[in-house]
Nucleic acid binder design. Structure first.
Length: 570
RNA sequence: CGGGGCGUGGCGCAGCCUGGUAGCGCACCACAAUGGGGUUGUGGGGGUCGGAGGUUCGAAUCCUCUCGCCCCGACCA
C-alpha cells in the first residue's frame, strides 16, 4: 500500500475524553473514531488490525474443527422468552420493535439463536459432536461504556457453540477450544493467563477466562507462586489460616463521634483495622436484609456472597431505609450485636476475638466483643476476596494478584438451553437426549485494545507483527529531490510485495522526522529508510519498532532482516 | 440510577467572573525556501460559541429549561 493512496490521519494531541493509553493511541494514530457513547468506527488502518485478528481466530477455530456460520444480529423476542432471558438479561439487552410492534433485540450473545438452529438441524447423535462459530458484531447496552473499544456497546466478537451427546463430548470440545485459545493468543504474541472463573448465573461445570495482563485491566487475576493455579479473584477460594483466641476483654461501649468508616474507626481507637469488624447489609432472599460481616481489612467478594442461599441475587446493598428498619441506626455504626436478622460471617471474621464493631447507636462502637459470648455464633462462609500472600488453595505456595483484561471466556453450558428450548437428538437407543452445549467467546475488538495496553511506549503503539496494520514500512528520505531514492524505494516496494510482505510505502512528500513520528505512533514493526547517502554504498537503514538504534544493512538483506527480527511483544 | 465536570472551526484550548467587532496552537489550502527526527516564512479557508426560551439597546458571557459527552460511585456501615 502506498501511503499517498491510503488514509493516514494522526494527531499530536491526545483527545481529552480518552482515559487509558490504548484509547488515546487508537484515536491519535487514526485507528478509530467515536460516533457516540460506546460506538466506534474503524478507519481503514484500524480495520486492518481487526481483520488480522479475525484471520488468526478463524484459522485456529477451523483447525480445531469448528464450522463458521453467520447469524442475524436482530433476534426475535420469543426466542429469548423461551429461555426466560428476555426478562432476566436486564437493561443490557437492547430491545426494539419493528413496524408491527413486535419485540426484537440486538444480540448481545447467540445461545438462543444457535440452539434454535441446533434443534432444527441436528437429529441424530451420529451428527455429533459439532461446533459452530461466527465472527460478528454484538450489542450490549453497557451501564457505563468506557475506555474506547475496550468496553464499547457495539463490538466484534467471535462466539462458538459446541454440541455433544454427553459430558464426555462436552469435555472434549471444551479442551479443544482451550487449546485453540492458547494457540490464538500465542500466535498474536500477547502475555496472557487462562484462569478459573465463575460461570455466572447459567451454571455449568467448568469455566475459564483468558486474560491479557496489563495494569489497566478491569479484572484482578490471582495466581499461585508454585504450581499452575490461576483464577479470577471473583472465583479464587480463600484458605483461612486464622484461629480464634479466647476472650480476654469485657465488652464495653466507646464513643466514636463522626466515625463512619473502618479507616476512621481504626484511627480513632488507635487499633489495627484487622481488629475491627465490618458489617454490610445486603438484601436477603427470605428476609428483607442479611448482615455480612468481614474483618476490617478484607473486601467482600460479591460473587461469593451472591451464591449464598440467604442472599438475594443479584447482590444488592440494603437501602438506607432498610438499614434503619433492621438496626434502628443509620449507616456508620452498624454491628452484628443484637441484630435479629441472619448474620453470615467470613471465616476470618468468625475467628476474631475481642473485636470492635458498630454499636447500632449513632456515634458509638463496641470493643471487646466476642462471638458466642456477646452474640450468637454466626453462620460461616468464605465471603472475602483473597489478598496477596494468602495460601494457594490448590497446593503449595502463596497467591499473587495482577490486573488482567478479559479477552476470552470458555464455559460448559450443559443442557440448560437445550432443555428450555427442547433441543434434543436421538441417542443410540433411539431415545431423545438434550444436547450438551459449550460456549466460547473471544472479544476481537477488545483484543486490539488489549494488545496496545500491553505494548506501547512514549512514541506510540508497538504492534506484535502478527496483527500490525502493516508489517513493514519504507521511508524514503528526500524522495522529491532524488530520482535515485525514488527508484530504489519503488524497487524495494515491489520486492517486498512480491515476497508477500504487507508493506507500506510512505511516499508522502514529508520530511523524515514527520514520517518517522507517524510510523512509530502507528506502530509498524519494521522500518526501512532509503537515502542517497545509503544508496551510495548499496545499503538501507533498518530499525525495528523496539530497537534502541538503527542499523545499516545491505540492500539485498531486507527480506532476510524482516524474517529474522519479528518484533517481540515482551 | 446518584454525584461531579465539560460542550466555543476537524483536534487541543482561551475568552464567560465584570455583557459591546469570536481568538490562539495543531490540522487543512496556496506559494516559497528547507530536506535524516513532528522545518520555516508569507498568504488563506473554515465556527449563527450543543439546542430552545428568557433578561437586555446589545448575550459565547447573565437566568431557565433541554440535549449530548466525560469522570467518579454500587466497599457506606
Amino acid at each position: 500500500m502506498r501511503a499517498s493512496q491510503f488514509h493516514i490521519s494522526t494527531a499530536k494531541e491526545t483527545p481529552n475524553d480518552a482515559e487509558i493509553v490504548s484509547h488515546q493511541l487508537m484515536l491519535r494514530a487514526g485507528f478509530i473514531r467515536r460516533l457516540g457513547s460506546g460506538l466506534y468506527s474503524w478507519l481503514p488502518l484500524g480495520l486492518r488490525v481487526v481483520r488480522k485478528i479475525e484471520t488468526i481466530v478463524r484459522e485456529e477455530m477451523n483447525r480445531a474443527g469448528a464450522l463458521e456460520l453467520l447469524m442475524p444480529s436482530v433476534q426475535p423476542a420469543d426466542l429469548w422468552q423461551e429461555t426466560g432471558r428476555w426478562e432476566k438479561f436486564g437493561p443490557e439487552l437492547l430491545r426494539l420493535k419493528d413496524r408491527h410492534q413486535r419485540d426484537f433485540c440486538l444480540g448481545p450473545t447467540h445461545e438462543e439463536v444457535i440452539t434454535d438452529i441446533a434443534r432444527r438441524e441436528i437429529r441424530s447423535y451420529r451428527q455429533l459432536p459439532l461446533n459452530f462459530y461466527q465472527i460478528q458484531t454484538k450489542f450490549r447496552d453497557e451501564v457505563r461504556p468506557r475506555f474506547g473499544v475496550m468496553r464499547a456497546r457495539e463490538f466484534i466478537m467471535k462466539d462458538a457453540y459446541s454440541f455433544g451427546l454427553n459430558d464426555n463430548d462436552l469435555q472434549q470440545s471444551f479442551d479443544k477450544m482451550h487449546t485453540a485459545y492458547c494457540t490464538i493468543f500465542d500466535r498474536i504474541g500477547l502475555t496472557y493467563r487462562a484462569v478459573e472463573a465463575d460461570s455466572g448465573s447459567i451454571g455449568g461445570a467448568q469455566s475459564r477466562e483468558f486474560h491479557v495482563l496489563a495494569d489497566s485491566g478491569e479484572d484482578a487475576v490471582v495466581y499461585a507462586t508454585e504450581g499452575d493455579y490461576a483464577a479470577n479473584i471473583e472465583k479464587a477460594a480463600v484458605v483461612s489460616q486464622s484461629t480464634r483466641d479466647a476472650p480476654t476483654a469485657a465488652q464495653e461501649t466507646v464513643e466514636t463521634p463522626g466515625v463512619h468508616s473502618i479507616a476512621q474507626l481504626a484511627a480513632a481507637l488507635a487499633i489495627p483495622d484487622t481488629q475491627c469488624l465490618k458489617t454490610l447489609l445486603v438484601q436477603g432472599e427470605e428476609t428483607p436484609v442479611v448482615a455480612l460481616v468481614l474483618r476490617g481489612d478484607h473486601q467482600l467478594n460479591e460473587i461469593k456472597a451472591e451464591h449464598l442461599a440467604h442472599v438475594a441475587s443479584p447482590l444488592t446493598m440494603a437501602s438506607d431505609e432498610q438499614i434503619l428498619a433492621a438496626t434502628h441506626c443509620e449507616p456508620g455504626s452498624i454491628g452484628p450485636v443484637g441484630l435479629t436478622i441472619p448474620i453470615i460471617a467470613d471465616t476470618d471474621a468468625a475467628n476474631m476475638s475481642d473485636f470492635v464493631c458498630g454499636a447500632n447507636t449513632r456515634g458509638q462502637h463496641l470493643r471487646g466483643v466476642n462471638w458466642g459470648r456477646d452474640l450468637p455464633e454466626p453462620e460461616v462462609h468464605d465471603l472475602r476476596n483473597v489478598v496477596e500472600g494468602d495460601p494457594n488453595p490448590a497446593g503449595a505456595g502463596t497467591l499473587k494478584i495482577v490486573r488482567g483484561i478479559e479477552v476470552g471466556h470458555i464455559f460448559q453450558l450443559g443442557n440448560e438451553y437445550s432443555q428450555s428450548m427442547q433441543a434434543t437428538v436421538l441417542d443410540e437407543n433411539g431415545k431423545p437426549q438434550p444436547l450438551m452445549m459449550g460456549c466460547y467467546g473471544i472479544g476481537v475488538t477488545r483484543l486490539a485494545a488489549a494488545a496496545i495496553e500491553q505494548n506501547n511506549d512514549e512514541k506510540g503503539i508497538i504492534w506484535p507483527t502478527s496483527i500490525a496494520p502493516f508489517e513493514a514500512v519504507i521511508c524514503p528520505v528526500n524522495m522529491v529531490k532524488s530520482d535515485a531514492v525514488k527508484q530504489a524505494a519503488e524497487t524495494l516496494y515491489e520486492e517486498l510485495q512480491t515476497a508477500g510482505i504487507d508493506v507500506l510505502f510512505d511516499d508522502r512528500p514529508l520530511r523524515p522526522g514527520a514520517m518517522f513520528a507517524d510510523m512509530e505512533l502507528i506502530g509498524i514493526p519494521h522500518r526501512f529508510v532509503i537515502s542517497d547517502k545509503l544508496l551510495a554504498h548499496d545499503e538501507v537503514e533498518y530499525r525495528g519498532r523496539t530497537d534502541s538504534e538503527a542499523s545499516i544493512i545491505a540492500r539485498s538483506q531486507v527480506l532476510a532482516q524482516i524474517r529474522r527480527s519479528s518484533v517481540s511483544p515482551d
